[in-house]
């Protein structure tokens, strides 16, 4: 598992990477009430806003952590946004991306590095 400075987690499953938000991010957001997911097959570039998350407090975005193609999205979040609070690092993954080169993930933080980053 790798982590971004935007509090996303990235998990490699074969040749795709699964993306979600960390427990820390979910806690900061508060109760999530709305999730908008990207289109499947969308080509996205690192930094693109690919998901919208609305909590009781505010709206925020999930950015594409790397360049790639969206191959799957977690429709369960649309029907049950509170899953993001209940299981952010498990069932509440947001989307899966196919990358040309998985080695780009090496630049992201390991779990220990992310813990240090949180302080």
């Amino acid at each position: 598992m790798r982590y971004t400075e935007e509090h996303e987690w990235l998990r490699i499953e074969g040749d795709v990477v699964v993306v979600g938000i960390t427990e820390h991010a979910a806690e900061q957001l508060g109760d999530v009430v709305f999730v908008e997911l990207p289109e499947i097959e969308a080509q996205v570039a690192k930094g693109d806003e690919v998901c919208v998350i609305e909590s009781v407090k505010a709206a925020s975005d999930i950015l594409a952590p790397v360049d790639g193609e969206i191959v799957e999205v977690n429709e369960a979040l649309v029907d049950n946004p509170s899953l993001v609070n209940e299981d952010p690092q498990g069932d509440a993954w947001f989307f899966k991306m196919k990358l040309d080169d998985l080695s780009v993930l090496d630049e992201f933080m390991t779990e220990d590095e992310y813990k240090d980053f949180l302080g």
């Binding site: 508060g30 109760d31 009430v33 009781v56 407090k57 509170s82 609070n85």
Partner: peptide, 12 residues
């Protein structure tokens, strides 16, 4: 206080 550990939704 904007919220307590219960969270906005459950407090409401």
């Amino acid at each position: 206080p904007v919220q307590y550990p219960m969270g906005v939704l459950r407090e409401h």
